[in-house]
Simulated scan of single mutants.
Amino acid sequence: MTRTTLEASFLLGHKLVTAERLIQWGARPPVVSRLCQLTPKQSVRLFKWVSGCSPKQGMLPYDDNWIVRSATNNIHASLFLGIIQDLKHLLSISVISADQFLVAYALYASLMAKNKPELRQAAASSGHSPILDINRAWYLIGQFAAGELIFKHCDTCRARYLGLHQRHISFSQCPICEVWTDRSGRRRWTSLKSKHKRNA
């Protein structure tokens, strides 16, 4: 076996191991294909082997406005993409590899597992899962790279949070400070309408 063949075998093996880890975290075949440079057929076959079942049908989470659906969504997206940006800055890179994506997502999941009081409360009151889905996390990276998302800093709590680029200011408020709780216990973004309801 030549050196070139050995290197190719090692590279393929590394891709398969990375793909397996992605699937174990819940990544669907299209995400695995893009991150690991595998064919769709290879990704589906590997998914079935790792998970023991066929992959979920339907589209991936392509909701461009997901981060402004709720303050909780924004908190989770901001934490994850903040980790991604810090990792890119630390490594002086412009594009995240599959391995680096896994490191960032595992770190995010670890932070969620620690049950920070404010994050636990936000997740419980909204009824959302405390963990950002890995497929949506991958899509958020693409949104950020395309310039659709931008980071902002809150002057009050100093938090770094995400806003939609070229949107009205109500879509880029701090998800920690600019929220209020309605009668059902759900956290809502502050707006002129919500302020009126809160003060009524």
Rank of each mutant, 00 (worst) to 15 (best):
K88S: 07
C53W: 11
L16S: 05
P61S: 09
I134K: 00
L91C: 11
W66I: 14
S94I: 09
P40C: 05
G26R: 12
R21Y: 08
E118N: 07
Q100R: 01
K48H: 10
R136P: 03
Y62M: 14
S33H: 01
Y108Q: 05
R45D: 15
N115W: 13
L12F: 06
L87T: 14
K48D: 02
N65E: 11
Y105H: 13
H76L: 15
G13V: 03
K56E: 09
D86C: 10
S70E: 02
A109M: 07
R21C: 04
P40V: 02
Y62A: 11
M59E: 08
Y108E: 04
H89K: 13
C53H: 11
A8I: 12
A98I: 01
D63S: 11
A8H: 02
I96R: 00
F10N: 10
S125A: 11
P61R: 00
L119H: 08
F47Q: 10
S97A: 12
S70V: 05
I23P: 02
A123P: 01
Q143E: 08
R45I: 07
H89S: 09
L140H: 03
Q121D: 13
G127T: 11
Q57L: 05
L79T: 12
L35I: 12
G13Y: 05
T72C: 12
A104N: 00
L111I: 12
G142H: 02
S92N: 13
E7V: 10
A104R: 02
S126N: 05
I75E: 03
A19H: 04
A104M: 11
N74V: 01
P130M: 04
L87G: 05
L38M: 06
A77P: 05
F10Y: 07
K48M: 09
V68H: 01
S51V: 07
P30M: 10
M59L: 13
K88I: 03
A137S: 07
F101I: 14
L12G: 12
A113K: 12
D86T: 06
Q57F: 01
R120E: 15
A106R: 10
V17L: 11
F10V: 12
K114A: 15
